[in-house]
Amino acid sequence: MLAGVLYTVFAPGLAAQDEPLSNDAQQGRAIYEQSCISCHGNNGQGVPGRGPSLIGVGEAAVEFQVSTGRMPLARQGAQAEPKPPVWRGEELERNVRYLSAYIDALGGGPRMPAGTDLGANGDPAVGGELYRINCSSCHGYSGGGGALSAGAFAPGLLDATDRQIWAAMLSGPQNMPVFGDNQLTPQEKADIIAFINTLSEDGDPGGVFNLGRFGPSTEGLAIFLVGIVGIVIATLWIAGKS
């Protein structure tokens, strides 16, 4: 019996379950038990071969994975692909809030700040330097994303919201490293988000077509498909064919 009492007092999972969940967290649990439990397990401890443990991933992970539609996962693959989220608009916001509360109650983890315009006080120039040291190697100078090894890839950033970018930095989804607030302070995160916003909002001063901002590869394609082809057509007109 002593062993039983000691066990009850010290076993972590049971202790968590005994705490009363907030309303949001209860709603979150309902959603969890419908959409997430099959891969992430009863108490978020994960299922080997299907889904990792969610203990300690926090609100940030939920915000990122669910609002970009990566979770619930459609099928297993090299990595979770972004797709249209299961819920839309206000329902999405609410459900993200509920799930976040539940996962936070389950095992804690990084929390998201309030508000949607998280880059408002950021300095894009400082953000740019931070971006190029920490982010461009996977996400590209222009934020277009890039290929990682063996089928994985880093997604483009230009369509992401401020909250999604913040959440990704905090939670380090899949192959992305974690950039906690100890490593990149909230101000630095705001700077980076401000910089990414300049990438998506600024036009291209160099022309009407930016060739995907991929760099020399598409530029080389353009010189052949547009330049050489066009000029050769002109030569066919100017000179004879025999």
């Binding site: 040291i133 461009s136 190697s137 880093a154 991929f214 020399p216 530029e219």
Partner: peptide
């Protein structure tokens, strides 16, 4: 057609690199 938008690359620093780095064709 925009070409070689160097303002998007930033100045050269030895620790900086990007995915999809190519030389000219």
């Amino acid at each position: 057609f925009q070409i070689n938008p160097v303002w998007l690359f930033g100045p050269y620093k030895a620790a900086v690199v990007s995915v999809a780095s190519q030389p000219d064709w």
